[in-house]
Computed example of a mutant assay.
Amino acid sequence: MLTQKSFIEPDRGMLYLVPTPIGNLEDMTFRAIKILNSVDLILAEDTRNTQKLLNHFEIETKQMSFHEHNTQQRIPTILKMLEEGKKIAQVSDAGMPSISDPGHELVKAAVAKHLNVVPLPGANAGITALIASGIAPQPFTFYGFLSRKTKEQKDELDALKNGSNTIIFYEAPHRLAKTIKHIGESFGPTRKMVLARELTKRYEEFVRGTIEEVSEWIHENEIRGEFVVIVEGNAHPQASVRSEWDALTINEHVQKIIDEEQVKPTVAIKQVAKLRGLTRQEVYDIYHQL
C-alpha cells in the first residue's frame, strides 16, 4: 500500500497533470498557468500546439515532446529528473491528460517509484457535454473512442447495450456516421442520444434526439469538428438480458455461459439460477439430468 501527501515535502520531485482548454482559452485556470510557469519542464503531446497556449499566457517554460509514439522511450529520462527533485508538468493537446490522451503509463511508472503525482482540475469534453445533454448524468460510463475495426466495434457495443448507465463516447468527424449506424444497430433506433461538437468554441452545437433522428441529421449536414456522443442507458436492462436466453433450454443456457465466460459448470449453474429465479439445486438437477 502507498500513501501520498502531495504538498508535505515541497523539495521532492513532482509530476503535475495539467488540463488545458478544450477550445476556449479563457477556461485555463489561474493555478494551471502558475504551475506551467513554475515547473522545470512541460511534457507536451504536440509541442507546436502547446506553444500557442504558452505564448498566449506568456509562459516561457521549456517543453519536451511526450506522445503515444515515444512514451516508453521518454519515461526513464522523466523518472530520473523527478528523482532528482525536478518539477514537471504534463499536458495533452486539449483537456485532461490520460483521458483518451497520453499520460497513464507515465503516472503508473511514477507511482511505482513512489513519486508524487498531483492532478489539477480543469476542462474535460466528456463531462462538459454530459451535464448539458439532458440525459441522466449519473451513473455514467466513460468509454472514449470505440475500436476503428468494424467487428471489434460491434462487439464492444454489444457488450455495452444492456447497461443502465449513460455512456460517453468520443468520435472523429470522418468516422461519426459509421459509428452512429453501428450504435443504432446494437442499441436500437429509439434510444436517446446527444451529439456535442466544438465544445466551448464559437460553433459549439448540441444535437439531441433518438439515435434514428441523430442519424438522419448526420446524413443531412456537413460533419465537422470533434464529437462527444452521449447515449442514454438501457431503461430495462434485465428485460434485454432475458430476451437473449428466453429461447434457450436450461441446459443450453448453462452451456452458453460455460463456453462464453470459460467458467466451471458450478459457476454457470449459479448464474443461470439467479437469472431465471430458480434455486441452484433445481438448475443443477436439470443440467445433470437427475
Rank of each mutant, 00 (worst) to 15 (best):
I230V: 10
V118E: 03
R175W: 02
I99S: 00
V263H: 04
P189M: 15
G23S: 06
V241A: 15
I75P: 01
K154V: 02
N24L: 13
P189A: 14
Q153F: 02
Q238T: 11
K181Q: 04
K151E: 09
I269C: 14
E68A: 04
H114E: 14
D246R: 09
A32D: 08
L157Q: 01
K161Q: 14
P189H: 04
K5F: 11
S98A: 13
A123P: 05
W245H: 15
R208I: 05
E260R: 07
L290I: 11
K52I: 15
E282F: 04
A125D: 09
T77E: 15
V18T: 11
I8F: 06
L176H: 02
W217V: 06
D259M: 04
I22M: 10
M96K: 05
S147R: 04
I223Y: 01
K256T: 09
A110I: 06
F187T: 01
F66K: 00
I258C: 08
E45S: 00
I180L: 13
N116F: 13
S164D: 09
D155S: 14
A268K: 07
R208G: 05
K34F: 07
S133I: 15
L54I: 05
A172I: 01
A132V: 05
R148W: 00
L278C: 13
T29E: 06
V18C: 12
L15R: 06
Q281T: 12
L17V: 04
A196I: 11
V267N: 12
P173D: 07
H114Y: 10
E58Y: 07
L43M: 09
S6W: 08
V117A: 12
R74H: 03
S215C: 06
K5A: 09
D101L: 03
R48N: 15
L82F: 13
V207W: 03
I180V: 13
T210S: 14
T50Q: 15
I22Q: 12
E198V: 05
E152Q: 10
I78H: 01
L199T: 01
M14F: 06
E260L: 14
A129T: 02
V18K: 04
E252L: 05
V231L: 12
I230A: 07
A44W: 00
D101C: 02
G13C: 13
K52M: 06
I269W: 08
M96E: 03
I230S: 06
S6I: 15
P21A: 11
G13P: 09
I250L: 07
N49L: 13
P10N: 10
I35L: 10
K151P: 01
L195C: 01
N116K: 05
A125I: 12
L275D: 09
A159P: 00
L195R: 01
L120K: 12
K80G: 00
V118Q: 03
R202M: 10
E198P: 06
G209V: 02
Q4K: 08
I127K: 04
V263L: 13
I269P: 06
K274L: 08
K178Q: 09
M14D: 03
L195G: 03
K108T: 05
K192W: 03
E213T: 11
V229N: 03
L53R: 11
M81S: 13
M81L: 15
Q238V: 12
I168L: 13
T71K: 00
T190W: 10
